[in-house]
């Protein structure tokens, strides 16, 4: 099995840090140290617009399309500690004049490292070197963003946040070597509860991604500076306790406000150095990239055993690769060479 290069998106003049593919439209957004966000039509490969009106004064580190709404919109996180929201107010995707800055969100004290929308588009989460995660409630027009909760559970920089594709469960990865999971409180929707801490990595956790199977949270992959990818499995969620629990006095039950997770396995180790990004595809495969410039794809044989089916060195020449995303059976990678590459999995 191998990867074949379908297309290279050029234009960034500095490191490309992140990409996002729209869930319904053929839109690709890429962000860079050159302080611009480039939006491409994934089908025609044509550049639609460059979002660079000086709204940000530093590196754009993260980007994510909002999954809902009549027209496409996206959030960009920057090292200048602000988030910008952009949107297209017409259905005509090819016209660059239709893209406008809709909001600038301020609140974080330091560099923003990650942004992510909840599956229903109601919440935007952002994380920063200031150790916090902010959860913002968005209106349909992307005009008002109200901070509904600030998570301060990590002891160091929060590098990455990602929501589950169906549940309001957020996973955060940190410089403190942990992944933490948060869930909306059943009784107070503006309260977010730290339901699990996944510990074991021996270095910064750079990213995580949920398994794309089913409606409920099943498993999570995490990639780290320690050169490993770990697969975590939920044993049972706090809200579906065994029935015996309901008979226990409430003083005991308070302790069970936690999801039970276990480390299922560590994927075969092949990367040399930090693994910056991991992606779990709808096809069940996991892909990872990092400092060593290698694209690795893993296939599950059984629950504890994974096999490397692709390991391609020098995928961005001698440059580091910062981000990887699945798009069906295709992969999109972003590198320090400023390039964004679209690959096809040749089975």
């Amino acid at each position: 099995m191998s990867l074949s290069l379908v297309h290279t998106f050029t234009g960034h003049t500095d490191k490309c840090w992140a990409t996002s593919i729209h869930s319904k439209l053929p839109l690709l957004a890429t962000v860079s140290g050159d302080r611009t966000c480039r939006v491409y039509n994934l089908e025609t490969k044509r550049l639609i617009v460059v979002l660079d009106d000086d709204s940000h004064s530093k590196t754009l580190s993260s980007v994510e399309w909002k999954p809902t709404g009549e027209f496409p919109s996206l959030a960009i996180g920057s090292f200048d500690s602000t988030i910008s929201i952009w949107g297209n107010e017409e259905a005509v995707l090819e016209d660059e004049d239709n893209w406008t800055l809709m909001a600038i969100i301020e609140g974080h004290e330091n560099e923003i490292k990650g942004v992510s929308w909840s599956h229903d588009g109601v919440y935007l989460a952002s994380c920063s070197r200031d150790k916090s995660i902010w959860i913002w409630e968005a209106d349909d027009n992307n005009e008002e963003f109200e901070c509904v909760f600030v998570v301060q559970e990590h002891s160091q920089d929060v590098k990455h946040v990602t929501w589950h594709q169906h549940e309001n469960v957020l996973a955060s990865s940190s410089y403190d070597d942990t992944v933490k999971l948060f869930k909306q409180d059943d009784y107070d929707e503006d309260d977010w509860v730290n339901v699990a801490d996944l510990t074991g990595h021996e270095g910064t956790v750079w990213s995580s991604d949920f398994e794309k199977k089913g409606e409920r949270v099943t498993r999570l992959s995490s990639s780290s500076d320690d050169g490993t990818i770990r697969i975590w499995k939920i044993l049972h969620a706090a809200d579906d306790q065994p029935s015996i629990d309901s008979k226990l006095p409430s003083t005991i039950k308070t302790d069970t406000n936690q999801d039970m997770w276990e480390l299922e396995t560590i994927l075969p180790i092949i990367h040399h150095g930090p693994i910056y990004s991991v992606a779990w595809g709808e096809n069940g495969y996991i892909a990872s990239v990092g400092s060593d410039g290698r694209i690795v794809v893993y296939k599950e044989l059984n629950s504890k055993e994974w096999q490397i089916i692709i390991s391609q060195p020098h995928s961005h020449g001698v440059y580091e690769i910062n981000n990887i995303k699945w798009h069906g059976d295709r992969l999109i990678t972003a590198g320090d060479d400023g390039l964004v590459k679209l690959w096809e999995l040749a089975l």
């Binding site: 490191k15 530093k58 580190s61 090292f79 330091n110 560099e111 070197r129 910064t204 500076d225």
Partner: peptide
Amino acid sequence: NKQLNDKERVSA
């Protein structure tokens, strides 16, 4: 050591 070799911190 951790700080000196953290790509994001160095870039920032």
